[in-house]
Design a protein around this nucleic acid. Structure first.
Lengths: 223, 223
DNA sequence: TGGTATAGATCTATAC
DNA sequence: GTGTATAGATCTATAC
């Protein structure tokens, strides 16, 4: 996939280039993962697959010695049980769940940072939050990059947070052939058990082009 | 129900006593609402009913001239579409959804406050956030009062927010007969269409008492 | 009537 | 094997 980045509180200066390279490489070589929706009126249509995407990222980062599901220390247990990924002073959250998680992840990162909590034997210095672009059809109310960007921009304007954050948006070019991993799971909802998986070529259709008036925005076409 | 309160940033001094009285009255005379869970391994067991509770609060506050679903102005549209309730300078969020909404609601209230956004023809001065106590069985990951309290306590300690907030927790006494509204909806999940509703007497069992060892914590018993 | 955007409801997955 | 706690997945409800 392609990525877009927005940095807050000088994340660009603080983020270790080698650590960032490991994250960036992983995301740039990742194919778009899609699955069938089970939402009324759009059953079977292809949407962004958070299960497949999360699994891919985990399978890439863990061999690069990123720790997964790092436990949150007891003194902060009211902020949750664990952090998605971490290496040295860098925390990573991959967030495809509902939109309020953006401010949850941001504020708890702020507290981890203010208290100099250890991530991977080093005090936390910077957070990377990975989201998906608005261009992809997806489950209702799932967080998207542009929404996260607008919210963090506003927080930055009002000086609500000090923690350096690199916000990452996963995107693709519209109307361009891309690699897509299309997965069927054991159940229509929630399941992480793969029943069938195909790697195909496809594209994301942009509604705003004249000849696709009848298609929906961000429709994913595979063939 | 009974309530517990925690105030942040001098909400006690800023909250208009008459407006608070209207909220408090509503909550104190509200019965505990329960419904059947559809979660695997506990299908049919009674859990806190957010649908019924939300509807009750709306039906009480609207006649008291609290505005419901107040639109968020366009300049803040990235923070959402509306606010649950508002009257004059006071904003109310009733939050029984998943836990990240606490920090979402807190931070967006902070921005509304910092920018002096109008609620009901007056600039916002204080937020009231209504939650349910941890004592009640409930859907997984739904926000509860003690969790909200711990999170806001920590934010207050690190001076992350300035907006006055009154956090409210809905509770009941354990092992004590209370009024319970038990509702069946048209579908097992999500529905807001009432099929059957009974007002009964019941109680919330506390696991920690010796003679209830075999019961689960917070079990709601009706009879 | 259908599409969009939350907001809310509430499940499964997973580790302890 | 059971209960608890998130974290994540992802639906329906509702208004525009």
């Amino acid at each position: 996939m392609k990525i877009d980045i927005t940095d807050y509180n000088h994340a660009d200066e603080i983020l270790n280039p080698q650590l960032w390279k490991e994250i960036e490489e992983t995301l740039l070589k990742m194919p778009l993962h899609v699955k069938a929706s089970d939402q009324a009126s759009k059953v079977g249509s292809l949407i962004f697959d958070p299960v497949g995407t999360n699994q891919y990222i985990k399978d890439e980062l863990v061999p690069k010695h990123w720790k997964n599901n790092i436990p949150i220390p007891k003194r902060f247990d009211f902020l949750g049980t664990d952090i998605d990924f971490g290496k040295r002073d860098t925390l990573v959250e991959v967030q495809f769940s509902n939109y309020p998680f953006l401010l949850n992840n941001t504020v708890r990162s702020e507290l981890f940072h203010k208290s100099n909590m250890d991530i991977d034997e080093e005090g936390m210095k910077v957070a990377i939050i990975i989201t998906k672009g608005h261009m992809f059809p997806a489950s209702n109310s799932t967080l998207y990059y542009e929404q996260a960007q607008n919210q963090l921009n506003s927080l930055a304007e009002y000086n609500v947070f000090d923690v350096p954050i690199r916000l990452v948006g996963l995107i693709e070019d519209f109307e361009t052939d891309i690699d897509i991993v299309s997965t069927t799971y054991a159940d229509k909802r929630y399941s992480r058990t793969i029943t069938k998986r195909d790697t195909v070529k496809g594209k994301v259709i942009d509604t705003n082009t004249p000849n696709t008036r009848r298609r929906k925005r961000g429709t994913i076409v595979t063939y």
